[in-house]
Computed example of a mutant assay.
Amino acid sequence: MKMLRITLFYLLVIGTFQSCIVSEKPNMDFFSDNSYNFKEARFTSFNVPLLLAKPYIKKALREDGESEELISLIKKVSKIKVLTVENGSKEMLNDYAKFLNNNHYEDWATIKHNGENVNLRVKQKGDAIKNMLITVNSDKELVFVDVKGSFTPDDISKMLNAVSDK
C-alpha cells in the first residue's frame, strides 16, 4: 500500500511538471502547419502548469493592488499555452489574423503601449467564452498566449478595464 502511494505521488509530480517542458516546436494550430513557410522564424513554446501558476499569479496581482474581482477571474482559467516567435514577419502576423477570422475568433480589443500592440481575440458561443488569444507584437518579436477557460463577456470587459486603467 505504501509503495502504491509513493508511485501515485511520483506520477502526479511528473504529470504536473511535464507540462512545464519548453519546446522549440509550436504548440498552437496555425504555427504547427508544416506547409506554411515561416522562413527564419524561431519558436519557443510551453504550457503553463496551472496547479503551480495560479497561486503565484494571484499573489502577484494582490501585490500590484488589483481588485479581488479581477483576481477571482484566475479561477476560471483551465489552460494556458505560451508561444514566442523570434524573427516573425508582418506577413506571418497577417496570415495568423486571417486564420483566426476563419476559425470564428472575434477581435475584441487592441491596446498600444510603448511601441507594442496587444491584441485580444475571443471565441464565443452565446455568452460563453471558452478561448481567449492574446497577441503581443513588437517589431520582429511576437508573443502569443492562448487562454482556455469559462468566461463571460463581462469577465473580459472587467479584465480590459483593469488593464486600460494602468
Results as ranks from 00 to 15, higher is better:
residue 120 L to R: 00
residue 28 M to N: 06
residue 54 K to F: 10
residue 92 M to H: 03
residue 43 F to Y: 13
residue 115 G to T: 12
residue 65 G to H: 01
residue 46 F to G: 00
residue 34 N to G: 09
residue 46 F to A: 02
residue 55 P to D: 10
residue 111 I to H: 13
residue 13 V to H: 06
residue 91 E to P: 02
residue 34 N to M: 07
residue 165 D to E: 08
residue 147 V to I: 15
residue 123 K to E: 05
residue 100 L to H: 06
residue 103 N to G: 09
residue 12 L to Q: 08
residue 94 N to V: 07
residue 90 K to E: 14
residue 125 K to N: 13
residue 94 N to E: 11
residue 25 K to Q: 10
residue 69 E to N: 13
residue 95 D to W: 00
residue 83 L to F: 08
residue 150 S to T: 11
residue 160 L to D: 00
residue 22 V to E: 11
residue 65 G to K: 01
residue 4 L to A: 14
residue 97 A to K: 14
residue 26 P to M: 09
residue 87 N to P: 03
residue 50 L to D: 01
residue 126 G to F: 01
residue 150 S to C: 05
residue 112 K to E: 11
residue 7 T to Y: 15
residue 64 D to R: 14
residue 122 V to F: 04
residue 29 D to T: 15
residue 64 D to L: 10
residue 18 Q to T: 07
residue 162 A to P: 01
residue 102 N to M: 06
residue 117 N to T: 08
residue 152 T to I: 05
residue 118 V to I: 11
residue 32 S to F: 09
residue 35 S to K: 14
residue 126 G to T: 07
residue 1 M to F: 14
residue 26 P to K: 09
residue 122 V to L: 11
residue 66 E to R: 04
residue 79 K to N: 12
residue 55 P to K: 13
residue 112 K to G: 03
residue 73 L to A: 08
residue 85 V to T: 03
residue 5 R to T: 10
residue 144 F to M: 08
